[in-house]
Simulated scan of single mutants.
Amino acid sequence: MSVDVADLTPAQARERFRTGERVPTAGWCRGWTQANLIAVPARLRYELLLFAHHNPQACPVLDVGEPGAWSTALFTGDLRTDLPGYRLYRDGRPVADLDEVVEEWRADLVPFLIGCSFTFERALLAAGVPVRHLELGTNVPMYVTNVPCEASGSLSGPLVVSMRPVPEELVKTAVEVSGRYPRVHGAPVHIGDPAAIGIGDLARPDFGDPVEVRAGEVPLFWACGVTPQAAIMASGVDYAIGHLPGHMAILDVRDEDYRLV
């Protein structure tokens, strides 16, 4: 009998990823918070913290580990093996997508867990707002914009956004519902015309999978936790490890812990 991945606990999901399952995690572990991973050399940890402070909607920090640590207070698994996909960066370039990063995890790497908009998707559904990539069983589409983040030291780069098409009559509801989760990106940063933020073609996301925007729907764009990886690339950081976009760390904390009202 097949198991609905929405019914798994974080520990059960992490075990499946550790043993080779490689899928985007939207819809997994109902009610449990997911997070973006970025691990940088210790010499950059304060710059990344300041970058996150200056760009809180894109980079809401949920947890930070010690140098070399592969677990944190909110993630009791192994950050090197318990995500379903990783991306390795050298000199600002993505050089490999990996199933695990045990050999690549250096003693000076500091792991950051950044909030994810998957956290409020079930709240959107409960309010009657459709979530297209969940309907299709695909990865959320993500785009690099022409909106610059505020720089911090050597770190700078563009804002990355995720997109969900919403029926026009439900746009206000989607804004209100997601706005109750400011620590995991909150309300959209842009509504409507993608060209206004430098997106030329919604059918060609920079990360994830495209989804159709149907007649009567409006594209809504939320700040995305892949933004630190865009900064790694734009800034030419010599070494870093991130999650494969959409293939998240599933934490030992509940979505509702991040809901304000």
Rank of each mutant, 00 (worst) to 15 (best):
W222C: 03
G128Y: 11
R90H: 13
D97V: 07
C149H: 01
L37T: 14
Q12K: 09
E104G: 07
S162W: 00
T227D: 01
W222K: 03
C116E: 08
G157R: 05
Y46F: 14
H133M: 09
A127Q: 09
A13F: 08
V3W: 13
W105G: 00
V177Q: 05
A42H: 12
E104V: 07
P111I: 10
D97Y: 01
A107H: 12
A26K: 06
A69N: 01
R45T: 13
Y258W: 14
Y143A: 00
L48E: 12
F118T: 15
L159P: 10
V129F: 11
A6D: 07
E103T: 14
I197C: 02
R43Y: 11
L109T: 09
C224S: 04
M248I: 13
E103C: 08
V171I: 09
F112P: 08
H243E: 03
R43F: 12
A69V: 04
P158S: 11
E176P: 04
L50D: 15
F51V: 09
G128H: 11
A96G: 03
A39P: 11
E150S: 13
A223W: 07
P41V: 09
L49F: 03
P228I: 14
L260R: 15
P24Q: 07
A58F: 12
A39H: 06
V171E: 08
A58E: 14
V64D: 01
G137P: 12
L50Q: 14
C29N: 04
T72F: 04
R16A: 10
E15V: 00
D108W: 07
F112C: 04
R259Q: 15
A73M: 04
P94Q: 00
R16H: 08
H247D: 03
I241W: 14
G179N: 10
P228K: 08
T9S: 15
A151C: 06
P205N: 02
G225S: 05
V147K: 09
D63F: 08
H54M: 15
R87L: 11
P219F: 05
D82E: 13
M233T: 15
E21T: 14
M163E: 09
A230N: 07
L260A: 15
A234T: 13
F75N: 00
L74S: 05
A58L: 13
R22V: 11
E100W: 02
L220G: 02
